[in-house]
Structures are given as C-alpha cells and as structure tokens.
Design a binder for these strands. Structure first.
Lengths: 247, 247
DNA sequence: GCAATAGTGTCTGTAAGACAGTATATT
DNA sequence: AATATACTGTCTTACAGACACTATTGC
C-alpha cells in the first residue's frame, strides 16, 4: 500500500488560527465517512519539505498563500492514531486533496504540528473534495476531535501565546492603518486577558514596532481615534531577533 | 530496501550535552566509513514512540537510562541529507546498533531533534559496533558535521538556554549536596555568562528550589562553604509549571 | 447635556543590578 | 600574616502595574 509519491508514516497537521473582531477560532474539518472533527492535515511528498507540505495543506483549505507557519511540536506515538472511532478504509482517501494516501489512517503516523494565524474574514473556506464539512470553532467550543488533535490544539495555543510574548504580530491580522484599541483587542484576544489601556499604549509605543500617524478615523458618534501603522524596519527586526517580552 | 522493522524516512538525532567542572560538551560520533563527525541518531521502530527511540539511542551511547530528553525541533527538507561527503552504501549499516537501516543515509530523512543534559564524568562512552569514534566536544570546538547537524546543535543550545530560564536544572548534574559556587558555576556555564554572586544567591534562594543545610564542606585551606540540597517538592512543582524567569 | 469612546500622566512598589567589606580556613 | 575562598546587605534605578480625569463626537 505504498504510494511512492508520499513519505509513509509521516504527516503534518495544521492548527489554523483565525482572528476577527475580538474572536479567535480554529479551522476544523470533518471527513466524509467519519462523524468526528479533526485538524486539517496531509502527507509529505518525497520531494518537498515538511514546511512546504504544511503550507500546501493550509493553502488548500484557506486559499491563502502567504501564511506564516510555525512548527511547534512533533507527535510520534504508535498508539496516537489508533482510534476506534475512525472508519478505516473508507476514510483515508479524502484526507489529502489528490486522493492518494500512503497508508490507512490508523497506521502509525508521526505528525509534525504547525500553527498559523490568519484573519478569518479573509478566508474563503475550501472543503477538500471528500470533506463532509470544514469550519471555524471558537477555542472554548472545540468538540472532541479524532486522535490526539485536542492535545495538538492545546500545545499550539501555548506555543502561540509564548510566541506573542516575544515577537510582533498583527501585520496579517490588522488593516494597514489601525487604531490603538484595535491592536490592543488583538493582543487581549490571543492572550485571553484584559490589559490596562494606558500601560498597553506606553509599552507598545516604546517597543517601536508601531508609529502614530497624523490621521484619525471617523467612527461616528464618538471621539475619533488616531491611526497607527507598523514600522516596517522595527517590525522585521523584531521578527528576526525577538523583543524582550512586551506583554 | 524497506526493512519493515523501522519507519522509513524518519530518524531521531540527539544532542547529548555533558556538564562537568565548568565545562559543557556535546557527544559526537564518527562512522567507520566516513571521516566526518555527526550527532548520534537512529531510526524509529514500528512499535515505539519517537521519544522511546531517542532514549534508546542516547542510552546506547552513554549507558545512562534515566535521561530526561527534550524535543526541540523537527527537520524535514529533502536536501538536508544530500551530502556529497557521505559514503553511501557502506555507511548506513553502522548508523544504528542492530545493523539494520531502512534506507541509505542520503535518502530523504525527516529527523526529530532531541537534546539531553548529563554529567559527563558519569558517562561511559559506548561506541556503536561500527563506529569509528565517539567523543565529547566543547561547544566552541565543534567541527564541521555531516548534514545539517551543526544547525541542530545551534538550535538545541538555544532551546536549552531558554529552558534553563524557566525550569530548574541540576538534579542530574550535581551531587545530592552541593555548594552555592557549584550551582552557580553550572548556570554560568550553560548560559555562558557570569553572574554576580550575591544576586545569584538571593534569586535562587527566593525561588525556593534549593534549601540551605547546616553542614559545610571542608575544602582545605579556605573557608568552608555551606551545603545545599534541592527541595524536592518545589523542584518538581517548578519542573511541571515552570518558574518565572530566574536568570 | 448625555452617551459612548479615545486619549493621556503620575505615583508607588518591586525587583534587578551594581557594588565592597568581613569571615573562615590553612600554611 | 598572607592567601584563597566564602558569605552577606544596601543603595540605586528601571519598569510594571494601579489608577482617574479630560477630550471628542453625534444625537
């Protein structure tokens, strides 16, 4: 049952986070012949890197190509895919887009976990040809998933929050020009805690990754907020070298 | 060339750090038919987890069985093992202890990187049956290694230092009873920077992971230092939940 | 003037870091 | 007494966190 096109016993799984309007969600899918939700994942071709494979999988479902993926952990336990609930032979062909799979889905798969962060209102969800369903779930409404995928999400969230503490985010999640309340809401949502407006503003301005513009945005019956934009140089430098824990 | 006993295209590589007397070293090996040093690594059996495989590999070379392994990153690029320097057919049989290898060593291997930290004076180095050599190297004397193994070491060091910032270490590296200068030397060596004696002592005592004993150690012609021991409860609790960046 | 949102400065406490003099043991 | 090591406390500074009032806009 070896299709030479794919590496056997190896897969990638993606935790695709979507942010929009103070909500953080995760993209889940459900196979045709199985009534359980799972993370979108796929196999690795013989001539591609694991990162490329993960990007391909993410792109297939979201349509977005410029995703910034982050590897967070690799799962390799012979029992992790022994899941009584999965319908063996019928399921595997739909896991990957081109209808090829190196083994049945309950054989031993070592899976490399990646996560990414997108703006979910920009995503046009694209079901796999044999997916039954594919949709966003809020973090506190994740159902029981196949395999160890609930654990993957827990680990990915932890990793994302650690990342946010040391690297800038927001370029792909906010408009080019955004307000201070908007970027604060982004951080508060991802870190799942509220922060003091004055302290937040002080700290993020001191880090230098955003710049205050002269413009304001008209928001109707309220005081107009100032607009900000990312400082490209500082932002990129911080992406590379990290920033001493801002939040 | 598929030996069903092992997962194909998958390996584990171990960065085995050894600490002793203010020195931090890495265990490297050299295959019989190849004049380049590399990290000890191995393959994953069909019925074992990647962690078990990595432990097996580490135990084979060090003789130590109670190692605490830490997964730090997975490497999967189709070109990572295309190394002109390796002697293809002759080399692979010696990579693993039981003379079986699923492919030649230059096929595509996705490798899961682990590191561990040991007391190197306790290690009886055990060459693989077909290893030409196996030895400790100081961090600043690592030669050019096969494949991407130099990068693995860089990443492992980074990961180790990050780990040390948030979790206690030392139980496997120091005697049951140790002095303040000894534990400080350990931290200074791993983090590769000196620290102020007074501040170090203040901070580590405040963290609660060590306790001052009544005893002192006789060190000859000098003032006798007090002995300390780890506080098991605090230590284990900190291992689980981490400690707010001590150093 | 009311409601809703945005904007900003100061104070306090804590913790980190710099720093030097005293104590002990041996010869 | 000389040497080598160990022990410890205070001061300063920076940063985090708490906190409240004013400004703008539309109705």
């Amino acid at each position: 049952m070896n299709v030479p096109n794919y590496l056997s016993h190896l897969s990638v799984d993606n935790v695709i986070f979507g942010y929009h309007n103070k909500q953080l969600k995760v993209l889940l899918m459900k196979l045709n012949n199985n009534n359980y939700w799972m993370l979108p994942g796929g196999f690795v071709k013989e001539d591609e890197s694991i990162l490329t494979a993960a990007k391909r999988v993410a792109q297939e479902r979201t349509g977005l190509s410029e995703l910034y993926l982050n590897q967070f952990k690799t799962y390799g336990d012979p029992h992790r895919t022994k899941d009584a609930r999965i319908v063996k032979l019928e399921a595997y062909s739909s896991y990957t887009f081109d209808h090829q799979a190196p083994e049945t889905l309950d054989s031993y798969f070592v899976s490399v976990g990646f996560y990414t962060l997108t703006e979910f209102s920009k995503v046009a969800i694209n079901k796999g040809p044999l997916d039954q369903d594919c949709n966003w779930f809020a973090l506190d409404e994740i159902p029981e998933l196949l395999y160890d995928h609930n654990q993957l999400i827990v680990d990915a969230v932890k990793s994302l929050r650690l990342h946010v503490d040391h690297y800038p985010i927001g370029k792909k999640l906010l408009e080019k020009k955004f307000t201070m309340p908007e970027i604060q809401a982004l951080y508060e949502t991802i870190l799942d805690r509220t922060m003091d407006r004055r302290n937040f503003s002080k700290k993020i301005m001191k880090s230098g990754i955003i710049t205050k513009l002269e413009e304001q945005r008209n928001i109707g019956a309220h005081r107009a907020p100032y607009l900000y934009a990312f400082n490209e140089e500082k932002y990129n430098e911080a992406l590379k070298n990290g920033i001493a824990s801002i939040f």
